[in-house]
Amino acid sequence: MSYQTSDFRNGLKVETEGSPYTIVYFQFVKPGKGTAFTRTKLKNLLTGAVIDRTYRSGEILEEADVEEQPMQFLYEQQGIYTFMNTETYDQVEIQGTVLADDAKFLIESLEVNVLFYKGRAVNVTLPNFIESKVAWTEPAVKGNTSNNITKNAKLECGAEIQVPIFVKEGELLKVDTRDGGSYVSRL
């Protein structure tokens, strides 16, 4: 499958310069006396870097060989994380380096999206929010319900986050994964 400039849409996955990209912006431009072009911003699906590229009308880009699969986290062993496709039950092992800092949010049966590029798992997208119990924190301070004063807490999934001072060990918390882990609420 290949795409002409007139096929460009936001979210289209294209292969260029040896990497898969998704189109995050496109704009038809044409000088009055000149030929038509499409200006684009492309986001690298491996690194997240955004590049500007301008294509002449009629230029062709190949579809990127990428596929996103819904998967469930099963277990980790010696830095290898095993996931299962929730539709086909196929299992895949992913190196911890692919997950990087996100590994700390993985709890058993967490549903994630795994991006495959040319058949290889290259990226794992966590849900925006996870739920995890507080494994350890300093004792709660009674009567203080302010969210502004915080303390350290270690969650059962492994993440360490800042929580309000009233949070107790054993409580179930809702945590935002998008900014490295931030307290949202008690559940």
Partner: peptide
């Protein structure tokens, strides 16, 4: 070369012409 002219026009030049500007002598 026209391809070079228009590619540079749309990528480097026209984005800079934000304030009202007359461009003369093509």
């Amino acid at each position: 070369d026209d391809d070079d002219f228009f590619r540079r026009w749309v990528t480097e030049i026209d984005p800079t012409l934000t304030a009202p500007t007359w461009v003369l002598d093509f």
